[in-house]
Design a protein around this nucleic acid. Structure first.
Lengths: 214, 214, 214, 214
DNA sequence: GATGAATGAGTTTTCATTCAT
DNA sequence: GATGAATGAAAACTCATTCAT
């Protein structure tokens, strides 16, 4: 959004901002949010102490920027699946499920970051605001797809069914992320996808089957 | 399980241990895990500084004991639902779902505690070990119930179906907890339960319907 | 006194110098000398960081210039009273007293600035040098007036009396400034002036009375 | 005031508190308030960093305690003069003047401390509260003495005269302190006392003369 | 002459742990 | 077993100064 000043200084400043954010996320992933001190961050970024205050007003501001960045990354990665999906509603739902559980999206890095920030979310409203990845955008997208599907299947109360299917799918995906967090070694993406598709197939048998898992 | 010496001293020591654990959990709920310092804990417990090291070997030990306590509390609360449920498999499944989403189990307190600890889980193995509430016990319980149901319904591969249903149900419940964490104000227990039962009804129409939500 | 180069650049440079000095004094008055950082000063002046070093060689140099400016302001304001006073010695003394305690001279701003700098005076010789407003000029002026008065009154040792009266009057005025610093709400200029004139009337009854307070 | 707990630990703690306060005042005198960092204070006291927070809640709290201590010291020193003075009102006034300007009271140390704190007084209310040494106690003491003197001398409006004499004497003393601050090398206690007594002699010729200066 | 991003030494504060009582 | 004063490493933050543009 911000107009880019093309001067060298401004460009370098922007690179430094990004480097600090990436160093912060790296540190959270590798040593945890509690150990992620300013000293650790600047050591990783190879930049100076004062820069954090200069660009973010302090450690808190840097953390807020880091959550925002992590959210953008999630959406950017997921979008690559949606773009390939085309228009049929079941294709869009499948793209969300397969994308959300793909190794480019549901990674050790992503899970570490989200659970670290959510641990702080209750006390820090700004963090909370950005720690809901599966937010309105995803909600709306899934709801429209499910409503179209429910109508096609001729179900009663298609809007209610669609709302519940949306909510349930997102909850299932969330639950799979937690599963990955707690059992990183035994977690199996194929199984996770199959389970979500089993849920979808059970609700909308004309549109989904276990073969949807990619 | 050391045999209890019934002297007054031992009893008082045990009361102090409990008070420190409760103070720790209270503090995590109210001000977050990052702000929960030794000073904060002893202020809340009204006990002396040295006691934490005396009884738990340090702050880390106290935290581990606190996670254990939180896990016990979860199971104790959930068990009250299971005890009332009786033997039919669908009753046991319904007890888990309705219990897990009941206000005595899924509370602000419980959610705050679990997400706080999970944020640390990646780096602290002892914490991780205890931060999986929906662990083997629950897994086994649900699996047996679902296998019985799947067999009764005459489904193909009842074991696989049961494993997926178990996994899916637990993931759905996890997802609902996250939903409560991030949207504490708009979260609706009735809706959450209905969605889980819609999933169950879709998979096992002879055993579940939307009326299962209590 | 460098000859002014009349180019626009030089003029602007001079305006910038002044703006920095005023911003410094404003900041000292409003938030105290300890909080008056380079960042605060440039924010108030709306000028760039580097300018302080460009024009004053650093923060210290700016502070020295600011003390000088404050001293000039004190004298300029007091001079307006002396210019109106005319030649009679008692009129000149009265002008100093009434001027020094007038609201244009003894202001919240002036008092804040002087006490702030004096707190630093012990350690910073350059500051000390300029933080004596009631310096040689005022001393000489009062001494001459009092000597003339003492001679007219036919007192013994008129020079000694005059020296003591000068010293005493200046000390009284200083004391009144401190009183204003510490009790800004209850300070009463009329009372302060009356007390000084009571001192003068007691020493030189033929030349002063309580009516001298303006 | 505080009840002394006689345990060794408590006694040592109290000694440490005092040592930190003395180190703070020493540092302010020697290198100025701006240079008086926590590191400087603990180096001088030979105590640990954390102790400042332990006993005073932080640097600010320590400074407030230091102002209080400085005020007590002023009064304790002045009281030695008042105790020797006896009851006659002119003796009490003389004791205040001679005491306030005595080298045990008006010292380099005292002046450095008071002006350092007053520089901060405008912004820090707690400091302001304690930085008025010549406060109500001294005011009342002088007022009663002057009223008695004014009545004995048969002056008109003795209360008003006494109030002005009190205010004027205190202002003169304040002014002398400032004089000592700014001209530590040329300041002459004998001259300062003589000037105050000249003021007193001029107002109450039956009670004071230039010989009052000790 | 003017700018403001960058620096890093130095500041205050925090806090788990220790240990004499 | 219990206490709480003491410690000091490490934390976050401040800020005058520098210098490439």
């Amino acid at each position: 959004m911000a107009l880019k000043n093309n001067s060298k200084r401004k460009k370098q400043a922007d690179l430094n901002r990004r480097a600090l954010i990436e160093a912060t996320l790296d540190s959270i992933v590798e040593i945890g949010i509690a150990q992620t001190s300013v000293s650790e961050i600047i050591k990783r970024a190879g930049l100076s102490r004062g820069m954090i205050h200069l660009h973010f007003g302090g450690k808190d501001g840097l953390f807020v920027s880091a959550v925002k960045r992590a959210g953008e990354t999630y959406y950017n990665n997921l979008n690559r699946f949606l773009e390939k999906a085309g228009t049929p509603p079941q294709a869009r739902v499948a793209a969300v499920v397969n994308g959300d559980l793909d190794e480019t999206v549901l990674s050790n890095r992503a899970v570490s970051i989200w659970y670290a920030f959510r641990g702080e979310a209750r006390e820090r409203k700004t963090i909370a605001e950005y720690s809901d990845t599966r937010d309105e955008r995803l909600n709306t997208l899934l709801f429209r797809a499910f409503r179209e599907i429910a109508e096609t299947e001729g179900l009663d109360e298609p809007a209610t069914v669609a709302r519940d299917a949306t909510h349930g799918t997102l909850a299932l995906l969330e639950g799979m992320w937690t599963d990955f967090l707690i059992h990183p070694d035994s977690f199996d993406r194929a199984v996770a996808k199959r389970i979500v598709f089993r849920f979808l197939a059970a609700m909308f048998s004309a549109h989904f089957d276990l073969m949807g898992a990619k």
